[in-house]
Design a protein around this nucleic acid. Structure first.
Lengths: 235, 235
DNA sequence: CGAATGGTTGAGACTCCTCAATTTGCGTGG
DNA sequence: CCACGCAAATTGAGGAGTCTCAACCATTCG
């Protein structure tokens, strides 16, 4: 059955929208869904596009980014498995950001009109999407609050904490190892810093014994408490 | 008729949600609505509250703010007339921010359950709210992008441009005068700067003849083009 | 092996913050 | 009407933090 391959897999992290769908509609939705794989670096949406697809991310990590007038790229958000991409009902608005795969990605894509019809027919699904969008808005605002006054060290430490949480590594209290999905440059774009500053802060945390850097993009969180404390360092 | 006094007034700036309601439901909603006035500085929602009211702002300006671990206040967003407050369908989640009146405010408040029922009964209204929330998310992300790398001058200039737009003063091309709704301290909290730096940048714009500061909180935008250019100044 | 890419480390410049003093605006009371 | 006091805003000097520019190391790939 098709949706066994597609939408059931969307139900990642228990937050997926399809969980709100009765099976009949799930089947109807799956009939319109396209499975898509994106290679690392591939672009799903480009800023300025007039058509914004709707999709559920199944595996992998994507970045939402914009390019400022000086040509620098700024990453304004990350999308993890289970997250929703798209803006149904928004009308023919111009996409404001690029959405690009940071790792190999698999997703479940639908035409916006189909998604809109399914949402209209399934209030529970629309409620879930609305609630999730509000939660995402609150998260974006929280990030705004921390970016506003946090030091470089706090930004880097905060990013490590959040990445450890979202990639499900450890419980935040014991030693855990994560593979960073971002390069130093991408971390810099995300945190509003430069590559060099990110690198220096990582080295500082390593010197202090808070993290270990065994090589590659692997990070061992040796002292989660100290890391969490560093994340609250303010100007 | 009740709703003539309440919800018709919500239809500010042509974006209000009630515009999507048929008259019969509008009447029903108005029956549950409470008109409320807030004095300057009064708090509508406090971070940590378990109940998040739903409301439409009719007149005035509110701030969404959080207090960081060091006790500093950070303003993560502003709410203008016509904006919606609340998070229907999100369940009993803790409010993450304070929402405080910056000026005298009048708003139209509803119990979350009533709002949820009206949204369920009126898909068009829920679509409108979803679209608006997505647009607000895009705006928050855009702010993230500019806060990440903009200089102090660009932050201040950008704030002036946006305030002029949202308060409907001028067309962005000719000389316009606005009354700032925020103190220097509040601007600093919003832009992630200090009071002194905000003041210095305002003085710099004045010296350059870009703006005039006739006194009080009044700002005359004498050279909108130069102001817009200053807003794009990056580190 | 050499080139290319990504990461680390160092020195100096620049921006913004901190601390402090002064000025302005405004409401109160004499 | 003016003096006073208080809060807000402005201005200055010095210092901390981050960026820029540059060189150097590590890893991967041809």
């Amino acid at each position: 059955m098709v949706f066994e391959q597609s939408c059931r897999q969307c139900a990642v992290r228990g937050t997926a929208l399809c969980a709100a769908l009765p099976d009949a509609d799930l089947l109807g939705l799956a009939g319109h869904g396209t499975h898509r794989r994106l290679a690392r670096g591939e672009t799903l949406v480009r800023a300025g596009d007039m058509a914004m697809p709707c999709a559920n991310i199944q595996r992998g990590l994507m970045k939402i980014c914009q390019t400022n007038p000086a040509g620098q790229e700024v990453i304004v958000g990350l999308l993890w498995p289970g997250d929703f991409v798209g803006a149904p009902f928004l009308g023919p608005a111009e996409a404001g950001h690029d959405i690009v795969a940071l790792t190999p990605v698999t997703l479940c894509q639908f035409p916006a009109r189909v998604m809109e019809r399914v949402l209209t027919d399934n209030p529970a699904m629309e409620h879930a999407l609305l609630a999730r969008t509000m939660a995402e808005l609150a998260r974006a605002r929280a990030r705004l609050g921390s970016l506003a006054r946090a030091t470089a060290l706090a930004r880097v430490a905060g990013f490590l904490v959040e990445t450890a949480q979202r990639s499900g590594a450890g419980d935040g209290e014991t030693i855990a190892a994560i593979d960073l999905p971002l390069s130093r440059g991408e971390m810099a774009d995300l945190l509003g810093l430069t590559i060099e500053t990110v690198s220096r802060q990582m080295s500082k945390l390593k010197q202090a014994g808070v993290i270990g850097l065994p090589g590659g993009r692997r990070v061992v969180i040796q002292d989660p408490d100290a890391l969490a404390e560093a994340a609250e360092d303010l100007i």
